[in-house]
Design a protein around this nucleic acid. Structure first.
Length: 265
DNA sequence: ATTGCTTCCTGAGCGC
DNA sequence: TGCGCTCAGGAAGCAA
């Protein structure tokens, strides 16, 4: 399931492969996967910029159009130079003038591509919390965001309005390293611990980006490669902690949570 | 404003 | 071998 590091890896891949290419069309092969909300459908022009906001991919085109992609759980954007490989669950496709394309493959069909007039994306993404790797993601900011939340710290960190880009795997890894129990109420986390959470959020995400993300099952880069950060996971999907204690697996808000009751308090 | 529930969907893994 | 069941989960939409 792609979270910030996986999305960032995909963004870098698109930048490398498709910058400057002329977009001919965006084809939709599954009802609802592609939505065009432009005032009027003109062309696209060429790809000028590829960015990320939280888990959203933003492909900005010269004709004042933005193609916004969300991979959700099983979405993949795979670059193809020409028509050799076939994708098993191709839901949409971005076609370039030179015959190459980006295939949007998505087993569970939750992923979405939204085409909009430039500027509209700011409005749609305005509710997202700060970027965890940006300068303004500080302990003061997080403290303020958590102060009124009675849900667990695990659920609060998953909320994209608090921090943009975290998902189930990285929240588990961050709380493990910060030695904070996922069960604690968000507003009861001490400033000292919030500082640890901020520190490890930055560290874990940076390291995961260096390793091109985490592949548990579906995630692939634009080059159709797996990530390597799964080899550095300490708690997600694990049986035993480094300390020797058994890792506990519970459910919070319908999602699985992994933690070490001995190390995380 | 926040919380919690439901919905979307397919493939893998399991017991029988 | 194959059936039916459960599980995985990001975010939107809704009700309380």
């Amino acid at each position: 399931m792609p979270e910030l590091p996986e999305v960032e890896t995909v963004v870098r891949g698109i930048r490398r492969r498709a910058s400057g290419k002329e977009v001919l069309k965006v084809e939709c092969f599954y009802p609802g996967t592609v939505r065009d909300i432009r005032d009027k459908s003109t062309g696209y022009g060429t790809i000028e910029m590829v960015d990320r906001r939280g888990k959203y991919i933003l492909i900005e085109c010269s004709a004042q159009v933005v193609i916004m992609v969300h991979l959700r759980m099983t979405g993949k954007l795979i670059y193809e130079d020409s028509g050799e490989k076939e994708s098993s669950h191709c839901r949409a496709q971005i076609d370039f003038r030179d015959g190459s394309r980006l295939i949007f493959d998505d087993v569970r069909t939750f992923g979405k591509i939204t085409i909009m007039d430039k500027g509209k994306e700011k409005e749609l993404l305005s509710k997202l919390g700060r970027e965890p790797l940006a300068e303004d993601f500080t302990a003061d900011y997080l403290e303020q965001k958590l102060s009124k939340r009675t849900v667990s710290i695990k659920q609060a960190l998953l909320d994209q309005k608090v921090i943009a880009g975290l998902g189930n795997i990285y929240v588990a890894e961050i709380l493990y390293r910060a030695k904070v129990s996922p069960l604690r109420a968000a507003h009861k986390i001490k400033k000292r611990e919030i500082k640890e959470i901020v520190k490890y959020t930055q560290q874990v995400l940076s390291q995961a980006i260096e390793k091109n993300g985490t592949t548990i099952s579906d995630y692939r880069s634009v080059e159709d490669k797996t990530g390597e950060f799964q080899n550095f996971l300490k708690v997600y999907g694990k049986e035993v902690c480094d300390c020797g204690e058994k890792i506990k697996r519970i459910k919070q808000g319908g999602r699985s949570t992994y933690y070490c009751p001995h190390c995380q308090t």
